[in-house]
Design a protein around this nucleic acid. Structure first.
Lengths: 233, 233
DNA sequence: GCAAATTAATGATTTATTCAAG
DNA sequence: CTTGAATAAATCATTAATTTGC
C-alpha cells in the first residue's frame, strides 16, 4: 500500500477508519453503514489532495483585511488575468422584459429545468447563462421585497407618486393586479407545492447529471401562465 | 414523529402593496443593444411560457420512478436500500473524513472545479453529488462558526478547559489543532485570494459549459496541502 | 429485544446581507 | 445609485441514534 505523504501529519493512524474524530455521530459510533461499496475495500483514499487545496498562490497576500472573510481582494492591482468573459451579465431589454413577465406570472425561484429553458430562450436576445437567470430571480425577489418594505415604512403616501412615472406605453402593465393581495409576499410561486415534491432546488444539480429531483414535468397542462387575477378580488 | 409546528407560514411581515411596474430600466431605454440577433427581428417572445410556469403539480408520480440515475446499483441486496431518488445524501465515514481533512487543510468554499474533483474522489466511497460537497462545506463552515461563537459567549475563560472533555480514547484527536486559535473565525480559506480571481463561485457554472471564471489552475505547484501552521505562530 | 416516539445532528433551501461592476 | 454576483445567516426537513413502553 502506498503511504500518502500528505496524511503524514495526522492521518497516519489509519487510512480508512479514523476519520472524523470529533465529528463522529454524536450519539453512537456506527462505523460502517455505507450502503455498499465500502465494504469491499476502501480505496485507501489516495487521491491527490494537492490538487484540491488550491496549489497556486503560495505566497500569501492579504494580511490586512482578515477581518472576517475574504470578501474583498485587498490588492486589485495587477489586472493581468485573462479576463475571458469576465464581465458580468448585462441584460437586454427583451431579457428583462421576459424575466419580469415570468416574475409577474408568479415565478419566483425557478428550478433547474426551468432555468435551463429560460436561459435558452433568453439566449436569443443576448448572451446569458443559467446563473444569471437564477441570480436575477433571487435579486429581483429580494429587492422587490425590501423596496416594498421601505415604502410601507417610510412614506406611506409617497409624495411623488412613483408609479405614475412611466408605464410602458405598449402595455398598461398589469402590475397592480398581480400584487399579492396584501397578505404578504405570499410567495405564490407556481403551485409547485405538490405534496412530496422535493420542492425546488437550484441549478446546481446540473452537475453531473440531473439525478436529483425535479424533472418530473410529466405533462403539459394548459394552465395559463399568469394567474393574474385569480380571484378577481 | 416530527413536530414541525414550526413557522410554516410565518413570514407575514407586512402587506404588500405595489410592486413591479416601475421596475423598468431606470437609466435608459436602450431598446436593443443585443450583441447581435435581435437586430433582425425580435422573435416576438413567443416561447412557451406555459412550460415555465410549472404546469404540473398535480400528481406526484415520482414515487418510485426512478431512481433513474441511481448510480449505484451495486448493492442489490438490500437492507435499507437507497430508495428512490428522494433521499438526501448520507455521507459515509470515509467521505466525512476526507471532507474534514480538506476543511482542516483550509478549504472553505471550493470552487466548481474543486468540487468536481472532490466529488469524484468521494464517489469512490459512496454515492455523492457535487451539490452535496458544496453544501457540506457551507454547513460545516457555518456550524463550526456558530459553535465557536456559542463557546466564546457562554464560557469565556472556560475554567474547565473544554477540550479535556472526552477525547476519543482511540486517538488523541488533534482537534485542538485545527481550532482556529480563537482569534475569531480567521477564515483561513486556502489562499485563494488571488488578485482578481473571480473569487470562487458555485457549482452552478457547471451549467451549460464552464464559461465562467475559475478554471485557472495553470500548473501544479507542489505546495503542501495543509498550511497548518504556516507562520509557525 | 424490538419498534414507535423523541431528540440531536445535519443535509438542503431560502432569505438577508454584502461586495463591487457599470 | 442601480443591480449582478457572491456569501452568510436563518430556516426547513429528514435521517440516525436514543429513549421508552411493551
Amino acid at each position: 500500500m502506498k503511504v500518502h505523504q500528505f496524511t503524514r501529519g495526522f492521518w497516519e493512524h489509519e487510512p480508512s477508519l479514523t476519520l472524523g474524530c470529533k465529528r463522529l455521530r454524536p450519539l453512537a459510533p456506527k462505523i460502517s453503514n455505507n450502503t455498499d461499496h465500502s465494504t469491499t475495500n476502501t480505496p485507501s483514499l489516495s487521491f491527490d489532495l494537492k490538487s484540491f487545496i488550491r496549489p497556486e498562490s503560495a505566497s500569501r497576500i492579504n494580511l490586512a483585511s482578515s477581518d472576517d472573510n475574504k470578501k474583498d481582494p485587498p490588492s486589485p492591482q495587477g489586472q493581468v488575468e485573462t479576463l475571458p468573459g469576465g464581465t458580468r451579465w448585462n441584460p437586454t431589454q427583451e431579457q428583462i422584459g421576459i424575466l419580469e413577465m415570468l416574475y409577474r406570472g408568479g415565478m419566483r425561484t425557478p428550478n433547474a429545468q426551468q432555468i435551463e429553458q429560460i436561459t435558452i430562450q433568453l439566449g436569443k436576445y443576448g448572451k446569458i447563462e443559467g446563473k444569471n437567470v437564477f441570480y436575477w430571480f433571487q435579486n429581483h425577489k429580494a429587492r422587490e421585497r425590501q423596496k416594498q418594505k421601505r415604502n410601507s415604512l417610510g412614506l406611506v403616501h409617497s409624495p411623488r407618486t412613483p408609479t405614475t412615472t412611466l408605464v410602458s406605453p405598449t402595455f398598461s402593465c398589469i402590475t397592480t393586479l398581480d400584487t399579492p393581495k396584501r397578505g404578504e409576499v405570499m410567495e405564490r410561486d407556481q403551485g409547485d407545492h405538490s405534496p412530496l415534491k422535493k420542492s425546488r432546488s437550484w441549478p446546481l444539480e446540473y452537475i453531473e447529471e440531473q439525478n436529483w429531483s425535479m424533472c418530473k414535468e410529466e405533462e403539459h397542462k394548459t394552465l395559463e401562465l399568469f394567474p393574474l387575477h385569480p380571484e378577481g378580488r
